[in-house]
Amino acid sequence: MSTAIVVQVALGGLLMGLVYALVAAGLSLIFGLMDVVNFAHGELLMLAMYATFVIHENSGLDPLLQLPLVAALLFGIGVAIYRGLIARALGVRFNTGMVQIFVTFGLSIFLVGAAQLAFGADFRSISNGLLANRTVAMGAIVLPLSQVAAGLVCLIAFAALALISRTEFGRALEATREDRDAVALIGIDRDRVFSIGWGIGAATVGIAGVMLASFYYISPTVGGNFALIAYVTVALGGFGSLLGALVAGILVGLVEAMTALFIDPSLKQIGIFAIYVLVLMIRPRGLFGRL
């Protein structure tokens, strides 16, 4: 096995890992904020991919240029989900944990069904975007332009999330995370913080969806492929930790690629879960978790 292949596969794993990280970031944010695991997270990704597809089909607007549009749309969807479902679920007086799980789980089933109803079960894809089917070659290393761009956009999104956490809203977010009952005493509108948190979480996965749509297929169940990895990534990085999601995402991408290269492609998920179990045994709160 030549070094070129190893470098190539490692770079590919890194780029995919950045996408995993961004998908996980939104999940981690919401969980860290209010202890709610969003089981419909993969479906938000799917919605973003279909939104990109539909806009591209109807207006010809390139996926890359749709980033702000779809991010804003997903922000709205995130806020709507919080206001319409999660806020109500949080208000339940008994069996709160179960209710929260079932409400997002039910939402995920609903969204998959709705997508199949609206778009059919066929696999869709955007094959004529600016980035589609182009590669960048550096000697023996060939990388798809669409994935390089996706990796860069993911890094920028992480930088933006880091900036947000330094703003006044970011501090309110942090405070609400620390003690959601106490913040009301110092004049923070908890409901508003929560709904914006959901908005940002959904917008983050929306950005990942736009970038994925330019090189991945789109189908009602596409979210499932990424959701499982996102849950592992969040748990690996530590619940609620932005840096954790980034590091864990990259780690998962690399481990997946290396397992496929050196052991067996059909065992690549085992590589991911082996790392996960290892971290759980040695450091149960995750790499950067504070819980």
Binding site: Q8, G12, G224, N225, L261, P265, S266, K268
Partner: peptide, 20 residues
Amino acid sequence: DISYQASTPSLAVEAERLKA
């Protein structure tokens, strides 16, 4: 002779192996 798990998020490494 490459075996992979269906509905995987990526087949990039598999493609590399085929290329090699």
